[in-house]
Design a binder for these strands. Structure first.
Lengths: 227, 227
DNA sequence: GGATTATTTTGAACGCGTTCAATATTCCAT
DNA sequence: ATGGAATATTGAACGCGTTCAAAATAATCC
């Protein structure tokens, strides 16, 4: 009756077991990557039987999703703080990306699991699914803030949808970063630098009268994407 | 000595076995999709033992890749022919996309396997890998032709890289189409229509003096992508 | 405290993709 | 024709993610 949730009523001992499994998993994922780590490894390291891992996590990938969710939540303050120091839009978006990379860096080897079923929006583990919507919303909110405080005036019609577009852009950058084998991921750095330049240029131009029809098409495009 | 290849010297009987396995696989993939179809299903339907399937195909996904390659080759003439009737660039690109969809349509249920390891450019089965380069080159060539005969004048600096960018665009559209659950994939149709409009608008504007720096950034971007 | 119920834990089992040593078949020089 | 080498085929076995009935443990009620 004290810590009553709706469905599960976990005992402290259970919470501890869950935590041990979760942390063993992350430790192994970091060491060996997602695929090479087996559920038997995880259970063994946590000192429980194989089945216990599945009692607490519906699948191997669900563990990674929980990590992603936790990371997203714990990054909130850090990102807002990092934003407070930047004035220029380009720097503000860059700062969000860099904080993301910084937080993901120790876990780079297994985050590819997050994109495994990405295009299937009906998969509960997809970043585009209804199930992951809360995580997504928070990330989009960060980009809304970044946009809000920037030095680029955004046309009113574009404004509501832009954070979502920036989030798509961010996801693409993360995906590239995950598989970037260059030293210190300098290819990603280059890509981010160039693409941010392009992005801000286009944004600045987007206010031009000439661009009215282009903006309209972009908005229709977003509508088709979002359903 | 007659049909001598470098490595394999397959006997007619072997070719037949291989063909039977390949066709059983495609049939089952089409019926049930990629994942639900098992290698044991495939071997069983082909009337061979499980191991035989692996004697001819290095993996389950390799079968899909062979299909993709074959489809790409057999589509060459159809695409060039379809292009011959179109003058406007927007129509020319649309026609390429539509032919692709048309040829992929009966196999829509299993083509998602092609994108499974897409972001890992080191995976031999990735559309971005060196191993799949010949397939990719041919697809890019189609888009080069589409561009060439169009009614939009493309700046000289942009011209060499544009077919590759269009190929990326095409891959994105195919990916969307594969997972589009709307009736008759009308969401994809909408997306293509809108995005093509945007694309052509941007291309038309790309020649403006104002756009010089933007083009430069885009080119640097492509360079970073292509390595 | 003991019986009953709910929660937690176990490990065997399943089906999967894949590997591989063993066997059968075909090819070819003599 | 025949024997040895190349090729083709087999099916058992492995390790994997996942499931599940059964057992062990904890919580609750009289």
């Amino acid at each position: 009756m004290t810590t009553s949730q709706l469905k599960p009523r976990p005992t402290p001992r259970a919470e501890d077991t869950r935590r041990r499994i979760y942390e063993s998993a992350l430790k192994l994922f970091r060491e060996k990557g997602f695929e090479p780590t087996t559920m038997r490894d995880i259970a063994g390291r946590a000192g429980v039987a194989l089945g216990a891992a599945y009692y607490y996590f519906s699948s191997k990938e669900a563990i990674v999703l929980e990590f992603y969710q936790e990371m997203q939540e714990s990054s909130h303050d850090a990102i807002l703080e990092a934003l407070s120091g930047e004035k220029k839009l380009k720097d503000r978006i860059r700062v969000v990306l860099e904080k993301r990379f910084e937080l993901l860096a120790p876990n780079r080897k297994f985050c590819d699991a997050l994109f495994r079923h990405a295009p299937d929006t009906h998969d509960p583990l997809s970043p585009f699914s209804v199930e992951t919507r809360p995580i997504r919303e928070r990330a989009i909110e960060h980009l809304r803030v970044a946009l809000e405080g920037g030095d680029v005036k955004v046309p009113a019609d574009l404004k509501p949808q832009l954070p979502f577009l920036l989030w798509l852009y961010q996801m693409a950058m993360i995906l590239f970063w995950l598989y970037d084998r260059s030293p210190r991921q300098e290819r990603t750095q280059k890509l981010v630098e160039k693409s941010l330049g392009l992005l801000v240029s286009l944004l600045r131009m987007s206010g031009l009268p000439l661009m009215k029809p282009v903006r309209k098409t972009v908005l229709e495009l977003v509508e088709t994407l979002a359903v």
